[in-house]
Design a protein around this nucleic acid. Sequence first.
DNA 1: AGTATGACTCATT
DNA 2: AAATGAGCCATAC
Length: 126
Amino acid sequence: MKKNNSGSELPVADNSKHYSFFQDVWDVVRQIPEGRVTTYGAIASYLGTKSSARMVGWAMNSSFMVSPKVPAQRVVNRAGLLSGKAHFATATLMEELLQKEGIQVEADKVVDFGKVFWDPAIELKT
DNA sequence: AGTATGACTCATT
DNA sequence: AAATGAGCCATAC
């Protein structure tokens, strides 16, 4: 039931399921349009809620070393807080990247979060 | 091998 | 409504 419309078709590894999970997360994040953000829970939910949203965070932690860049700055927690900013190169990098894309950030929180929220389950469903 | 922790979220208090 | 507890599952120690 996993369909990768973006191109990188991972044949749903029968055994190493967690591996494909990371790949799927990165794929979804890469498809987030500029100026939009999504949440860990939304991604986890889109992928089947099988794993907790925490695993999406772990996937992000590894996202820095994957080949195509993953716009991890566009992934925030459910409240719109930049919970992962501490994990970027600098404490302000995440906020800077978001603002550069047109997303207003105030007090480590995405302004108009409800407007810029991008739900893969809705926008990416197929 | 068992415990602790975390880029989370939801239910309950 | 804010705070707390519990579920979540892979890594780290």
